[in-house]
């Protein structure tokens, strides 16, 4: 089973839920932090990393001796990463390249070879039998999705997976949620939380994945998130009260289940409920 933890709005408690869920379980799971722009799960999990690797993406390198400036590469490139101008060598803009392979496939002179652009690094490690992986996007790099896919590719095949997704509703979060079995949406009961939750539910429905809700900071705002969940028939599996103590625990980088052990069985119950939801959904699909 693959659970992705997402939110729409940032700062609603995704990482808090994903890390506590993973560490509360009494079985071998894996936690993949796919918020490669601002990864935070490692601050709480404190895994011992034993592997680190640089992730790159292929970009074109033009052999100017072979290039006849025919312009086919420039024509196929949708991302303006190649410019063929009169009276000068063909130029490449590697930061704009999406690595589609169009230019080196069409070049009639075989003048384009592959160079590599660094996307960032991925690190993997363990804590208490949990496999942990995350990616760190290189500062200045614009494209998060290929690095997110590289983090997901580190997953071991034999165990449940929890994915800490980035905020938003565009390509990075889609890369993190795609082909997961269930999306756990973490929100807060405020107008911002509700608005961005609605966008996130829209994204989850486009992907046709079942979803469930965790409402964090319950009591801080109003009850419109709860009303929305009822109306849309989205199960609310956990409510975490608004309490300054929780914010203080989080601020120190501590785990809720360790600072307040009463929460450990609650996160285990959350996991069982998610499991049930996925089993029902699969049975209904058959």
């Amino acid at each position: 089973m693959i659970i992705s933890v997402a939110s729409g709005k940032g700062g609603t408690g995704k990482t808090m839920v994903a890390t506590n869920l993973a560490l509360a379980l009494d079985r071998k799971v894996q936690l993949l932090d796919c918020d490669v722009e601002e990864p935070n799960a490692h601050l709480f999990v404190q895994a011992a990393f034993d592997h680190r690797e640089t992730v790159t993406t292929p970009v074109p390198k033009i052999d100017q001796r072979r290039c006849t400036q025919c312009g086919e590469c420039e024509q196929i490139c949708q991302f303006k990463a190649i410019a063929v101008l009169p009276d000068t060598d063909a130029l490449t803009f590697p930061e704009l390249c999406h690595s589609c392979g169009g230019c080196w496939t069409v070049c009639p002179e075989n003048a384009i070879s592959l160079d590599q652009r660094e996307l960032g690094v991925i690190e993997t490690g363990h804590r208490n039998g949990i496999f942990f992986a995350h990616g760190r996007l290189r500062i200045g790099e614009a494209m998060a999705p290929p690095l997110i896919r590289a983090v997901r590719a580190t997953a071991l095949p034999d165990r449940p997976t929890i994915i800490d997704a980035p905020p938003g509703t565009s390509c990075p979060v889609i890369a993190a949620m795609k082909d997961t079995d269930v999306v756990l949406l973490v929100t807060e009961p405020t107008p911002f939380g509700l608005h961005d939750l609605q966008l996130a539910v829209g994204a989850v429905r486009i992907l046709d994945i079942p979803c469930a809700l965790v409402i964090n900071r319950q009591g801080a705002g109003d009850d419109r998130v709860l009303q929305y969940a009822l109306q849309e028939k989205i199960p609310v599996l956990m409510e975490i009260p608004f309490d300054r103590r929780f914010a203080e625990i989080y601020s120190r980088g501590e785990m809720l289940i360790e600072a307040m052990p009463v929460w450990a069985p609650r996160f285990r119950a959350l996991y069982r409920q998610i499991e049930t939801l996925v089993v029902y959904r699969k049975a209904a699909a058959r």
């Binding site: 918020d35 722009e37 601002e38 500062i139 998060a144 905020p167 938003g168």
Partner: peptide, 8 residues
């Protein structure tokens, strides 16, 4: 939020 393409 973040540091990727929309922030750049």
């Amino acid at each position: 939020p973040g540091i990727g393409c929309p922030v750049i």
